[in-house]
Amino acid sequence: MLHHLEIWVEDLVASTASLGWLLTRLGYRLESQWADGASYAQDKFYIVLESGPDVRKQAHDRLAPGLNHLAFSVATRGEAEMIVREALEHGFTLMFPEKHPYAGGPEHYAAYLEDAAGFEVELVATQ
C-alpha cells in the first residue's frame, strides 16, 4: 500500500485551486499547508502538492516518462458526472469528450480530466 504521494507542481496556487480542490471534493482533508506546499489526507494515506525551490519551472508532460495520471474511485456514475461539471469550474477540461464516459472502453465508466498544468486525473465509477 502506498504511504504517500508527492507531486511537484510548477505553480502551487494554481495546483491547489485545481488538484487541491479535487482532492477535497473526493473526501481528502487539507492536513497541512506551508509556504511551498500542502498536504491532503484520507485515512493514513496522504498526497502532497509542493512547489519548492528545487522544482524546475516547466509544465508537466503526462506523455513523458513519469506520472501519466492519477485514478480515483467514485461511488456512482452520477457522482462522476457531478464532479466533472464542478471540475470544469476549477480549471479542468474534459479529455476525450467524443468518447466520454467510455474512453477507457465500453465496460469502463470513467471521466478523464486535465488541469491547466497538464495533470490528468481519471474518475472511475465503481457502480
Rank of each mutant, 00 (worst) to 15 (best):
residue 2 L to S: 04
residue 2 L to G: 02
residue 2 L to F: 11
residue 3 H to P: 02
residue 3 H to I: 07
residue 5 L to C: 02
residue 5 L to F: 07
residue 8 W to N: 12
residue 8 W to T: 07
residue 9 V to E: 03
residue 11 D to F: 08
residue 12 L to D: 01
residue 13 V to M: 07
residue 13 V to P: 02
residue 14 A to K: 10
residue 15 S to W: 04
residue 16 T to S: 06
residue 17 A to F: 09
residue 17 A to C: 07
residue 18 S to L: 05
residue 19 L to E: 08
residue 21 W to K: 09
residue 21 W to M: 08
residue 22 L to M: 12
residue 24 T to M: 14
residue 29 R to Y: 09
residue 32 S to H: 11
residue 32 S to G: 14
residue 35 A to H: 11
residue 35 A to N: 14
residue 38 A to S: 14
residue 38 A to Y: 02
residue 39 S to H: 13
residue 40 Y to L: 02
residue 40 Y to H: 06
residue 42 Q to V: 08
residue 43 D to I: 15
residue 44 K to I: 14
residue 45 F to C: 10
residue 45 F to T: 09
residue 45 F to L: 14
residue 46 Y to F: 15
residue 47 I to K: 08
residue 48 V to H: 10
residue 50 E to N: 15
residue 53 P to Q: 08
residue 54 D to H: 14
residue 55 V to M: 09
residue 55 V to D: 01
residue 57 K to E: 13
residue 58 Q to A: 11
residue 58 Q to K: 15
residue 59 A to S: 12
residue 60 H to V: 10
residue 61 D to N: 13
residue 63 L to I: 09
residue 65 P to R: 11
residue 65 P to M: 09
residue 67 L to H: 02
residue 68 N to S: 09
residue 69 H to D: 04
residue 69 H to S: 03
residue 70 L to K: 01
residue 71 A to W: 04
residue 72 F to S: 04
residue 73 S to K: 05
residue 78 G to A: 05
residue 78 G to P: 01
residue 79 E to D: 01
residue 80 A to G: 00
residue 84 V to Q: 00
residue 85 R to V: 12
residue 86 E to K: 12
residue 86 E to H: 13
residue 87 A to T: 12
residue 87 A to G: 04
residue 89 E to R: 15
residue 93 T to S: 12
residue 94 L to V: 02
residue 96 F to D: 08
residue 97 P to E: 05
residue 100 H to T: 04
residue 102 Y to H: 15
residue 102 Y to W: 11
residue 105 G to N: 12
residue 105 G to Q: 12
residue 106 P to N: 11
residue 107 E to G: 09
residue 107 E to V: 06
residue 108 H to Y: 15
residue 109 Y to K: 08
residue 110 A to T: 03
residue 110 A to H: 00
residue 111 A to Q: 06
residue 112 Y to C: 04
residue 112 Y to I: 07
residue 115 D to K: 04
residue 117 A to S: 14
residue 118 G to D: 07
residue 118 G to I: 13
residue 118 G to C: 10
residue 121 V to Y: 01
residue 122 E to V: 14
residue 122 E to S: 02
residue 122 E to Y: 05
residue 122 E to F: 07
residue 122 E to L: 04
residue 123 L to I: 00
residue 125 A to E: 02
residue 126 T to L: 09
residue 127 Q to C: 10
residue 127 Q to H: 10
residue 127 Q to Y: 11
